[in-house]
Design a protein around this nucleic acid. Sequence first.
DNA 1: ACTCGGAATGAATCCCCGTTCATTCTCGAG
DNA 2: CTCGAGAATGAACGGGGATTCATTCCGAGT
Lengths: 215, 215
Amino acid sequence: MAETAKKPSRRTRARAPVSRDKRERILAAAVKVFAKHGFYATRVSDIAKEAGVADGTIYLYFKNKDDVLISIFDDRIRRLIEVLHREIERCETTEERLRRIIEIQLGLLEGERELAEVVTVNLRQSTRMLKQYATPLFMEYLGVIASVIAEGQREGTVRADISPRLAARAMWGSLDGIAVTWALADGDPANLRTAAKQFATLYWAGLAASTPSAT
Amino acid sequence: MAETAKKPSRRTRARAPVSRDKRERILAAAVKVFAKHGFYATRVSDIAKEAGVADGTIYLYFKNKDDVLISIFDDRIRRLIEVLHREIERCETTEERLRRIIEIQLGLLEGERELAEVVTVNLRQSTRMLKQYATPLFMEYLGVIASVIAEGQREGTVRADISPRLAARAMWGSLDGIAVTWALADGDPANLRTAAKQFATLYWAGLAASTPSAT
DNA sequence: ACTCGGAATGAATCCCCGTTCATTCTCGAG
DNA sequence: CTCGAGAATGAACGGGGATTCATTCCGAGT
């Protein structure tokens, strides 16, 4: 109906079993409606309407409603991990790396608020899903942060008496907590940026090896 | 059925409109089943069965299913805030206070794991509920932590360039994050205690005014 | 132009579960 | 012992919404 796009002009995009960008459209639509109403209050027909497809079409691309949510995590967290890897390599010091991660994490919220809300809020909606699907990927994500910290310890710039994994968990939790309260109670991008800066300072002060006069 | 309790022997407990401990029984049962299956996957009849009452009885004590969840938050978070207040007054220094809060928070998880899971996981299940009910109480809870930090700033033991509210949010987020990953992936009480100790160290190092040689 | 296979459709199905309410039970008062 | 009011029951109702599938559409190949 409200097709904004032109008719297909490229002739040979028909190798994939089903069109890839329809799948993407559905995922994007799902992000939008999940963010607005939450997973359980969203009905499949809402996703379909938002995506501009029929209800049944969704089942050509996904096993069921749960699978849609799972796929969002999968896609997006995977992408986030990639971005982190790329950005981390650009940084010189451990401090920079951690600051960058914090920026990315909270910056993403600004750009893709809806997505962030899905990852932040909906991640908790189904215990079962969380246990079965989100956890391994999520652990990988934590692993990225933990390894930055571990490297810092090897360099001697990060205190050695803290488990990198714990520090990573704490960091994730803080960012998540900041994000949630920001999204629910505040919503001003400026505040988020301030928060990111302050948190980075706080966090690094906590982690830095105890040679504070290193200036 | 499996009534362990004896028959009622006390004659005059009939002053309250409806018995108070039945309400408590239902809440306790709800905590248990919500923790196991999550809010949405739990049906009212599950709560009823767990509590040993009929489905309809629940509607004598609560407006509807949502109201049960809301009442849990209300009851329990209120109680937590009280405990924090009491414990905080027992402590001499800001550092002690913060360490104590961390201990309580994570210690509670050990003792009442199910309750903790409800507060941790289910807090996110309904955006609407979260916005309308949980937030004010939750903010009060954050306020308790923030005021401890603010006091530390007045004393000069806590760095002044961090917003107490932000620090409180970060702390809550970390504890929550630690709790979630612990509950989902680990489950060993010893690890939780270690985590509490390490996190307290990390967090305090981040917050302390930059006179680390204050020994 | 015709055929055929895969993609898309969306109305109909079917199950599930929150809530209600007619009925039964309990127990203290008279 | 009888009565009655409140408490409790749980079967039945009703609406919602995930999923299905018979049908239609589309476009490439001949």
